[in-house]
Design a binder for these strands. Structure first.
Lengths: 158, 158
DNA sequence: TTAGATGCAAAGCTTTTGCAGGATA
DNA sequence: TATCCTGCAAAAGCTTTGCATCTAA
């Protein structure tokens, strides 16, 4: 968990909510703190619900969905839909964009970044004559059996 | 609609179904013909249902879902989930893979291909040490106002 | 004759909505 | 005090399942 990212997101979020003329509510504050901490990479609504309950705060499902939709509308969250049809959210902040890999073996979603891929997407959009507002890359697969072999330099930015 | 693609897919599908020891059923035949014709780029289950009804054949919703799942399991269909949570299918055949662009203005989904992008994805997967079984790229945006200007060479393979 | 294939209806899941009551600025 | 925020419960969609029936091989 990146504490700096968490704080930066919380600050931005509060700022933007205030600018939108919205008030401070207990439920939303709890959700936002949970997101800032646990949604640095895609989390499902169910996972969020569980963590909120575990954190003691409680909160209703309806509020959670409403709040997520609201934050997404303000551009504070990215929203993805997995092949199973459930939606997942993660913090949206400039410079933190990443792609996703779904491990078929475990069902886990993991982030990765790749400047070349990013570039290729931008180029493709330009070729198509599009003003791109967003993009999503999901690679599905399994970890190659590494048996200790070097996997080559990580595509993840350091 | 690409008649050659349609026929090639139907042939492959029949072949693979037979190889899997499955029997011929009226409902599945109708669905397959509809897919071969209308699912060369992502169609929703609802759209398929409508077209099947319009074609007169009828068929139940349960069968449609079952058949789609079955064909997907045999690798004959690609399955995508759009941001609204509904799933869409399209024919899966070697050499016909393409990416998707969602036009925010119209909500339409359109296909495009881009060898460079394809390459970038393969490279990224390799770097990550993954055995890739699938990938999905969705670009969201709007068509730039072209006002007659050349958009550059199309990213679509000729 | 036997294992699939199909349709109908009901159940399951995630997500959304309606409303009344409770906060915030 | 006027909005906005919350929670509860019910509703809405899309998708899956159970079960009895029909059919291809």
């Amino acid at each position: 968990m990146d504490a700096q990212l968490r704080d930066r997101w919380l600050a931005t979020a509060h700022e933007r909510l205030a600018a939108a003329g919205l008030r401070t509510g207990a439920a939303r504050e709890r959700v936002m703190e949970c997101l800032a901490r646990d949604a640095q990479c895609l989390v499902s609504v169910q996972e969020l619900m569980d963590r909120l309950r575990r954190d003691g705060g409680g909160g209703s499902q309806a509020s959670l969905y409403r709040i997520l939709d609201e934050l997404h509308g303000l551009g504070l969250l990215h929203r993805h839909v997995l092949p199973d049809g459930t939606s997942r959210y993660e913090l949206a902040l400039p410079g933190t964009r990443h792609h996703h890999f779904v491990d078929e073996a475990s069902g886990r979603v993991e982030p990765f970044t790749d400047p070349d891929l990013e570039r290729a997407i931008a180029t493709a959009a330009r070729r198509l004559g599009l003003r791109m507002t967003g993009h999503e890359v999901v690679i599905t697969g399994r970890r190659a059996v590494t048996d200790g072999r070097d996997q080559g330099s990580s595509a993840d930015a350091p």
